[in-house]
């Protein structure tokens, strides 16, 4: 019982501090546009080998799948999607 209580409190504390520490500044200042290529390189080979070149429409559903699986930040998801959409034919 005690352990669960401590854990629940710890998690709430972590989330509380997370909200204070939040780096999301959309409501305060204009963020610099995210670098889709860098984010693609950061995320898309973390768990598996380099993804294959796909059509724009395939990419959209797969990156949505990966957003859930990898708990991607919404901004990172959009930036990777934009990068892949623009580089459908040239990438790989």
């Amino acid at each position: 019982m005690k352990t669960s209580l401590v854990l629940a409190l710890l998690s709430m504390f972590a989330l509380g501090s997370a909200s204070l520490l939040s780096g999301d500044t959309t409501s305060r200042q204009k963020p610099s546009p995210p670098d889709g290529e860098l984010l693609y390189k950061t995320h898309c080979t973390r768990c598996h080998s380099t993804p294959p070149s796909l059509s724009d429409r395939q990419t959209r559903v797969i990156v949505r799948h990966m957003r859930v699986r990898a708990n991607l930040l919404s901004v990172d998801y959009q930036a990777v999607l934009a990068y892949l959409s623009q580089n459908v034919k040239t990438r790989d």
């Binding site: 546009p33 429409r57 395939q58 559903v61 959009q78 930036a79």
Partner: peptide, 10 residues
């Protein structure tokens, strides 16, 4: 979104 949203995922 900075990508063309008119292209639907399949």
């Amino acid at each position: 979104a900075t990508y063309d949203e008119s292209v639907p995922p399949i």
